[in-house]
């Protein structure tokens, strides 16, 4: 799906910066810097227009309400860094939630259910990885098939919404740690932050992480360098699937139910967060922390529209679309200037 116009940028993602004649930022960080600027502008605008906007409570809620999206975006970052894409995550979130709800109503304990619903995601990811690597089906189509598969299985497991009354899940959804003035964090938020930390270490301080970037830069070069391309390509889909499974669990905790229609279009939110976070869809360039900032931007749009009160919900979609536009055009300009 990559266009020829973008091919030359692949090498520039990891290229060493030009000799410093004046103060400049490493080219790799420029897209993420754009995200930081947008985030700062949104915070400034929100803070100046609405009272109580810049409070711990509001910021904590952005994290708590989007914890599942953070986990999804982290998994998606791995896939996109290799130059692939994963459209199945939204459906896997629903599947994981449905299976957990079904298992709880059939008397399974939380100790078994929670690992199972995360592993469901892992399994779907493995199937996708094998389809992409062994059978050489394009990631777009393979993950599309996985999306249909997961949605179909959802309907078989739970044709209707199933409430979750398991005491462990209820406890997880009600626990709040923090101060009285609202700066709190939930177990879901902690899990999301832990996933980000693990992903950061894996991507930047392990051989596997370097291989992910190398494949995104040029798969052929990576293979010629003797890097384990096959294993890594399957593994990124397994990671994305596992993250989706975990995201499903977090969403089940958030909504305390399993429903086959949850997460419709969530894969697009995750992709949008990754793109806004400065990761190039051609692969090879981007940061997992950028994706987290991307989720924060999406969360803040939602918050600002809620604070405004008079704006209708569809403005969220339009603003996200406009932001995407600004970001991809900016990325493109940066790439052109660098050449």
């Amino acid at each position: 799906m990559a266009t020829d116009q973008l091919t030359p940028t692949r090498s520039s993602g990891t290229a060493a910066p030009a000799p410093r004649t004046r103060w400049r930022i490493d080219a790799r960080y420029q897209p993420v810097l754009g995200t930081v600027v947008v985030l700062a502008v949104m915070l400034a605008v929100g803070g100046s227009r609405y009272e109580n906007f810049l409070t711990g409570r509001v910021m904590a809620n952005v994290l708590i309400n989007n914890s599942f999206l953070v986990v999804l975006a982290v998994g998606m970052t791995f896939v996109i860094l290799t130059g692939g894409i994963d459209l199945s995550v939204g459906a896997v979130v629903a599947l994981s939630g449905c299976i957990s709800a079904w298992m709880f109503t059939h008397g399974w304990s939380a100790g078994i259910t929670i690992p199972v619903c995360v592993l469901v995601g892992t399994l779907v990811g493995l199937v996708v990885g094998v389809m992409v690597h062994v059978f050489e089906i394009q990631p777009f189509i393979a993950t599309l098939a996985a999306m249909f598969l997961a949605r179909g299985l959802c309907y078989l497991v739970a044709p209707e919404s199933i409430p979750i009354t398991d005491p462990t899940i209820v406890k997880l959804s009600q626990t709040r740690w923090g101060t009285d003035d609202g700066l709190v964090i939930t177990p879901s938020g902690v899990i999301a932050l832990a996933v980000v930390a693990i992903a950061f270490v894996v991507l930047h301080y392990t051989r596997f992480g370097r291989t992910v970037y190398a494949i995104g830069g040029s798969e052929q070069s990576a293979r010629l360098m003797g890097l384990p391309v096959a294993r890594t390509k399957v593994l990124v889909y397994v990671i994305s699937g596992t993250c989706a499974g975990l995201g499903g669990l977090l969403f089940a905790i958030f909504s305390r139910s399993g429903y086959s229609l949850t997460g419709v279009g969530m894969e697009l939110d995750a992709i949008a967060a990754v793109v806004i976070g400065g990761t190039l869809l051609t692969g090879g360039s981007g940061f997992v922390l950028g994706s987290v900032l991307g989720v924060a931007v999406l969360g803040l749009i939602q918050t600002i529209i809620t604070f405004q009160g008079t704006l209708s919900s569809w403005w969220t979609k339009i603003v996200i679309g406009a932001l995407l536009l600004v970001f991809v055009v900016l990325q493109r300009l940066l790439v052109l200037r660098r050449r």
């Binding site: 894409i85 949008a272 793109v275 869809l281 979609k317 679309g321 995407l324 536009l325 991809v328 052109l336």
Partner: peptide
């Protein structure tokens, strides 16, 4: 010169 999947994702969302 934006990748087609991203360029059209904009209108898919908006």
């Amino acid at each position: 010169g934006i990748q087609p999947i991203v360029a059209t994702l904009i209108f898919m969302t908006a």
